[in-house]
């Protein structure tokens, strides 16, 4: 299976070299593409200097638009599986094969790496876990699917989902929204256990004060997806 790892990067100059080096050493047979989302630091220069494969967005599109660029690139270049892999060192490349396995076996079209199945490694703060559980309950209600780690950005998409994402992808906080979007469109979603690290440098894209707004917005988005129920396929 032709596999590509999409690494969204916004001001990740401190992490990007380690992330890519770790990825290429542990998975030499997969391709990767860095999506530099108009970083204000020297992320692009570092990529060029190290001869990395990267796409430079001329306008900051945010994580949604950035990931969508990756899915479009993957789809256009005939990949069978696209892995979303954060550029900040949170994700372990050794689990990529576990993410691909259900797609290979034809069990699901979207596979999510969850840190809460085996409850190993970095487990994030208590309040975050409460929020993630609430999102999981909403997804269960609206999408009839058991998701323990709705905000996980470590996931694998099949070619069909890649095509779907390259046309329709939630923009602001896309991880939970994309789950309900693929469910409404009739794809199967599966979770596999992974271990995540605490970010080695940089700050999470979601600050404490924004998290309440985030919760309200994402919950509403999931409900609206269910109510509108538009099938994009």
């Amino acid at each position: 299976m032709k596999t590509i790892v999409i690494i969204p990067a916004y001001n990740e100059s401190e992490n990007i070299v380690n992330t890519v080096t770790a990825l290429t050493t542990s998975c030499p047979d997969v391709d990767y593409i860095i999506i530099n989302d108009c970083s204000t630091d020297n992320t692009a220069a570092i990529c060029e200097e190290h001869g990395f494969h990267y796409i430079n967005l001329p306008i900051n599109l945010g994580i949604g638009g950035g990931m969508q660029t990756g899915y479009r690139y993957a789809y256009d270049n005939g990949y069978d599986v696209a892995i979303q892999f954060d550029g900040d060192g949170q994700h372990n490349a050794e689990y990529i094969k576990d993410l691909i396995a259900p797609i290979k076996a034809g069990e699901a079209e979207l596979v999510i790496g969850s840190r809460f199945i085996d409850k190993k490694g970095f487990q994030t703060s208590f309040m975050r876990r409460v929020g993630i559980n609430l999102l999981g309950a909403t997804l269960k209600l609206c999408g009839h699917v058991k998701i323990t780690d709705a905000t996980s950005g470590f996931r694998a998409a099949s070619r069909e989902v890649m095509e779907f994402f390259s046309k329709h992808y939630a923009q602001d906080y896309p991880e939970p929204e994309s789950i309900i979007a693929v469910r409404v469109s009739g794809f199967r979603v599966k979770e596999v256990p992974v271990v995540m690290n605490e970010r080695t440098a940089g700050v999470s894209s979601i600050s404490t004060w924004k998290s309440v707004y985030y919760m309200i917005k994402v919950t509403l988005a999931i409900l609206i997806y269910r109510l509108v129920g538009k099938k994009w396929r």
Binding site: I55, L57, P58, I59, G65, Q68, R72
Partner: peptide
């Protein structure tokens, strides 16, 4: 449209 155009431009730039 702007997003789609930006993405197309970036992929072409690569």
């Amino acid at each position: 449209r702007l997003r789609s155009l930006t993405q197309t431009q970036a992929i072409l730039e690569k």
